[in-house]
Each structure stands twice: as structure tokens, then as C-alpha cells.
Simulated scan of single mutants.
Amino acid sequence: MTGWFAGEGDEFRLLGTRCSTCTSVFFPREDSFCRNPGCRGGELTEVPLSRRGRVWSYTDSRYRPPSPYVTDPELSWEPYALIAVELESERIVVLGQTVPGITVCDLAVGMEVEVVPGVLNEDEETTWTTWHWRPTGVTA
């Protein structure tokens, strides 16, 4: 997920791209052409996306996903919540997992969440990073 996010702590942001002609914003980033079918295209520039948004929808994942998702078959499977968030300024919906410990019982459509760094998987040599959504006011 190189180029999808940057920064740490309060500076952590998802990175998208914006078309200079129609001002459409894209995530995941688009570096080749404007995806807006009504636009003739323009220069695409990287933009940091809003850190906060509102829950648009959510569900839980109760099964171990197949490859290429990385999981340790030796460990027991822990369900996790998946969340769709409408970003505050861009008004686009971005999907992702919630922070560990937050379940669908803790979520409600319309509640405010923020993007934070997360760990997808790690072993002795590598830590694979990603983003998670966390309800505002929750620390972990």
C-alpha cells in the first residue's frame, strides 16, 4: 500500500489524488487519469485526505479471509469490524477496519470516527502497516 498513507500519530493521513480540471478526489490514489467520466482530464496531484468522517455503513467479518490476506493459521481467528466512512471534506466513502477492540456493537451510522495507523500483520522481520478507523474520543 505504498503511497496510500503517510505520517504518524496526529499527523497520520490517507493520501489521495485530486484532478486539477474537475477537482474530483480519488482514494485509492489515481496517478494515470481522471476517473470522472465527465472530465477530459487534468493533472493529478497528491492530497492528504480528511482525518475525520462519519460512519456511512458497517459490518463484521466473522471468517478468516482467504489468501492473499495475511493471517497466521496457528493463531485463533478474531472477528473484526469493517467500516465505510464518508470523509468530512471530500465527501467520498473510504473503507477500512476499525481499531482492535471496537465491534459492530460500538458503532452507529453517523458517528464521528478518525483515521489512525494500524498493523495488518507482523513477523520477526516485517511489520505490514495499514489504517484503521477509531471512534473519536476513544484512545487505544
Rank of each mutant, 00 (worst) to 15 (best):
Q97I: 00
D10N: 14
S57F: 12
T130A: 01
P117L: 04
L75T: 12
T23G: 06
R64A: 14
V115S: 02
L82Y: 01
R13F: 10
T45R: 12
R64K: 14
Q97T: 02
P28I: 01
S50K: 06
G53V: 07
S50V: 02
L15E: 06
F26R: 07
R29I: 13
T23S: 15
F27G: 05
Y80I: 10
G38E: 12
S24C: 11
C39Y: 05
V116A: 03
P65I: 01
F12S: 11
V99G: 04
L82G: 00
V85A: 07
T129G: 00
E86D: 04
G41Y: 05
C22W: 14
S57D: 08
G7T: 03
I102F: 06
G7K: 13
P117D: 00
P117M: 08
H132E: 11
L82N: 04
G41M: 07
R52Q: 09
G16C: 13
F12T: 07
V93S: 00
G9F: 11
R35T: 05
R134L: 13
A108F: 08
T98Y: 00
A84S: 10
E114K: 11
V55R: 00
G96H: 10
A108N: 06
L15F: 11
P79F: 08
G96L: 03
D60G: 08
E46H: 07
P65H: 04
E8S: 15
F12W: 12
T98A: 09
Y58I: 01
A84Y: 09
C34G: 02
N36V: 10
Y80V: 09
Y80W: 15
T45K: 13
V116N: 02
G41H: 13
W128C: 11
R29K: 14
L14N: 06
E74N: 12
P48N: 02
A108K: 11
L82P: 02
S67V: 07
L75I: 01
